[in-house]
Amino acid sequence: MSFTLHNYVLSGNCYKIRLMASLLNVTYESIAVDFHPGQEHKSEPLLQLNPAGTLPVLTTTDGTVLTETQAMLVWLAQQHDPSNSWWPVHSKPQITRVVQWLGFASRLTATVGELRLHSMLNKPVNVTAVKTGAKVVLRELESHLTEQRINNLQWLTGDTPTVADIACFPYTALSPDAGIEHDDYPAIRRWLHRLRSLPGFITMPGIYELHELRKPDGYTVSDATL
């Protein structure tokens, strides 16, 4: 076991770590935290681990505690990606763009993520503000991906996927859970599709396997998220 993850099955941020670990073929120990209805992430033992009271929390065997998903993704890539492609240390311009999009991922959590928690679990939020914010953020991502396509680049920061793509993937893919369908975002749809085709891809509720990767005749629901 390379690390322990305090985990919640419906959290898009926890899913980033599960997904990155699966893509890098890393096993780990998962501890289920009763986020809903138990609010266990706000309980004393969890607050001692992460005073911010958020999930996920990643602890490494040498005792490092990480509470920011973006840092966890970088840690995973540094430890387990010998090709250095997910965290492209050899390209200074690309790594700058990666950090830029890691930051952008937090805006997705704060808008789409919050709206989703409101729609699903009735979390009290300023609905108008997060809904407007979500559409602004998705529109920005759509323009960027369109531009990348014009430059013949398939991914957020270049021609290979990086931790930035993983960081931005979950809440973009889960926006229908929050009532924002993907119909108006063709470049986003193509990028989500590409990400779901990666070897080692795993699902979570609201994000399904690709139809064409399943057996013929199999009825699937992938169109709902495509």
């Binding site: 919640y8 099955v9 419906l10 289920a32 935290v33 009763d34 809903h36 209805p37 138990g38 266990e40 699903m120 229908p176 859970d177 509720p205 609201g206 629901v221 709902a224 998220t225």
Partner: peptide, 23 residues
């Protein structure tokens, strides 16, 4: 199983249904 494990197993399943139900 811990209580959190039992709840999350059920939530995993029900939230898979939710996206289908809403469509």
């Amino acid at each position: 199983s811990t209580m959190a494990d039992l709840i999350q197993f059920q939530q995993l399943i029900f939230l898979q249904d939710r996206s289908i139900l809403e469509n």
